[in-house]
């Protein structure tokens, strides 16, 4: 894959290579953060010095369906030894799907000194780079967070309904089967079910993984991404776009692509996604 700076991204500084991470492992201004779907991965092996941010217990409120609040974020950042000036670098499994989710949640708190390691942990591992089981300990920091700002990059169901009525662009990043409504959820699946199968009216189907090169797990070039999102699906850079999936994690990956790699100024992630919309009384769906 070509050098990140040569891929034509709008904001290339948010993406760093495995080489860059290897060179910054001891940088006191950088905190490497692993965020995975699989909770077994970090304890089994991770990049030396990396801390874990777990999507279930660290990013979500445990009693209401929402993200952590200001004090919870301050506690998290203090635990991993970050200040407002620390540059956080996310990486993880599944082509950085969960890393982008954590990146998005950090942006809700204005922690924009954030990057993603291109190719994620699988690329690092396939390159034969060293990994460890040792969990690092950093001195607790003093971190003062602003109140979470949901207004810019997060969409709620009422916004989405207005979006539908205004015929503005929506992107459904789930699999084609989920989009078509032929696959709803696993039998007996306890967490992410929906009563109805289908998609939000007017949404374009662009599975999140299309942004990734399957051979080395890096992001495609800006030209390749524009071919998918713009030439094939008709999005335009100045569109007001809402992205969604099932619970908002896959769509945060697409939010990252549109916002940082293609430079779209207004993209919001609807984290209620299909688990909310597919169960919501009084809203339309399409199959």
């Amino acid at each position: 894959m070509t050098d990140i700076k040569e891929r034509g991204y709008a904001r290339p500084e948010v993406l760093v290579s495995t080489d860059w991470v290897a060179q910054h492992l001891s940088d006191p201004n950088v905190r490497i953060i692993e965020s995975n779907e699989d909770p077994l991965l970090y304890p089994a092996r991770h990049i030396a010095g990396a801390v874990e941010v777990d999507w279930t217990k660290d990013l979500n409120d445990q009693l209401r369906r929402d993200y952590l609040g200001k004090s919870g974020f301050e506690t998290l950042m203090s635990r991993i030894g970050c200040t407002r000036d620390t540059t956080v670098v996310f990486y993880g499994d599944k082509n950085n799907w969960w890393a982008c989710y954590a990146f998005w949640v950090f942006h809700l708190f204005g922690h924009t000194a954030a990057k993603v390691m291109d190719g994620g942990s699988l690329k690092w591992e396939k390159e034969g780079r060293p990994m460890t089981k040792e969990v690092p300990k950093y001195p607790a920091s003093k971190y003062v967070a602003p109140e979470r700002d949901d207004s810019r990059i997060r969409a709620y169901r009422n916004h989405v309904l207005s979006h539908v009525e205004g015929k503005k662009p929506l992107v459904d990043v789930r699999s084609p089967e989920e989009y078509a409504g032929t696959r709803l959820h696993m039998p007996d699946y306890p967490n992410e079910g929906a009563l109805r199968g289908g998609h939000i009216p007017g949404a374009a189907s662009i599975p999140w993984g299309r942004a990734i090169n399957p051979d080395d797990h890096t992001f495609k070039t800006a030209e390749e991404l524009r071919a998918i999102y713009e030439k094939e699906k008709g999005l335009k850079k100045d569109d007001d776009v809402v992205v969604y999936c099932r619970i908002g994690e896959r769509s945060s990956h697409t939010w990252f692509v549109l916002t940082y790699l293609l430079g779209y100024p207004k993209v919001r992630n609807y984290d209620g996604s299909w688990t909310e919309w597919g169960n919501l009384v009084g809203v339309p769906i399409e199959k």
């Binding site: 779907e37 279930t56 039998p187 007996d188 699946y189 306890p190 967490n191 992410e192 099932r246």
Partner: peptide, 17 residues
Amino acid sequence: KDAIYTIFGNELSMGKS
């Protein structure tokens, strides 16, 4: 089928389960 949840816990994501 729910033996998988007994083993891994109920936090399993949909894809993994």
